[in-house]
Nucleic acid binder design. Structure first.
Lengths: 104, 104
DNA sequence: GCAATAGTTCAAGGATTGTTGAACTTATAG
DNA sequence: CTATAAGTTCAACAATCCTTGAACTATTGC
């Protein structure tokens, strides 16, 4: 496994990419849960899809700069890049988070 | 031509669809210009793409509930559904508009 | 060591996206 | 009526997206 997964720098995060990452219902649910839980392992999202599918969606979120992945042993802990996003695109994530409807 | 183009009702507008509509650089530029100009004809966006291509992007914006199209003679005037979006997803459009960088 | 768990990579497939040119409809101008 | 301009529809195409199962790597526990 790559020791350092690819995360874009704060100032390389692009608005269109962030919105694209958040344009999928599954990824919106993931982000909503992260907003509540703060940090969560990949497998805690298994109710949203298969393992492979989650790897895919979590990768899209990460590469868009929406989330960060931290490796700890066999686990990956995912969290929102809240401060980075707020610094780069003030208000955007907060407004979206406030409007994700629960479940689907 | 259809007298009434399809526009979703305010409460049928979905967050994921709005974000998807705004996840394309061309459509972001269109929306930015609409925010400044208030109302504009299709052809006023010709510097962003071909006629056919604009029909495509404007349709995506309209069907997502982001814009409204009003026919007047041979023209179509496009505008943002500002109040509808603010009522449905408070703060979202405003935050995004405030963060679209000019040009590309 | 061996087995189990966490997660990724690969390859495949169908669905959607973005783009274009040609042909079309509708409306205005002369 | 004829010509022109505003937009749309259609058909095609390459590219990307989402989903899956099988095979893989890496870590933990016994």
């Amino acid at each position: 496994m790559d020791k350092t997964l690819h995360h874009p720098d704060r100032d390389q995060i692009e608005l269109a990419a962030v919105l694209d990452a958040l344009s999928d219902p599954i990824r919106l649910q993931i982000v909503q849960r992260l907003a509540k839980a703060g940090e969560a392992s990949c497998s805690s999202f298994l109710d949203y899809g298969t393992k492979t599918n989650l790897t895919y969606h979590l990768k899209r979120l990460r590469e868009a700069g929406v989330t960060r992945a931290r490796a700890e042993g066999a686990f990956r802990y995912i969290s929102l890049r809240n401060e980075d996003l707020e610094a780069r695109f003030p208000g955007v994530l907060a407004a979206i988070l406030a409007n994700i409807q629960d479940a689907a």
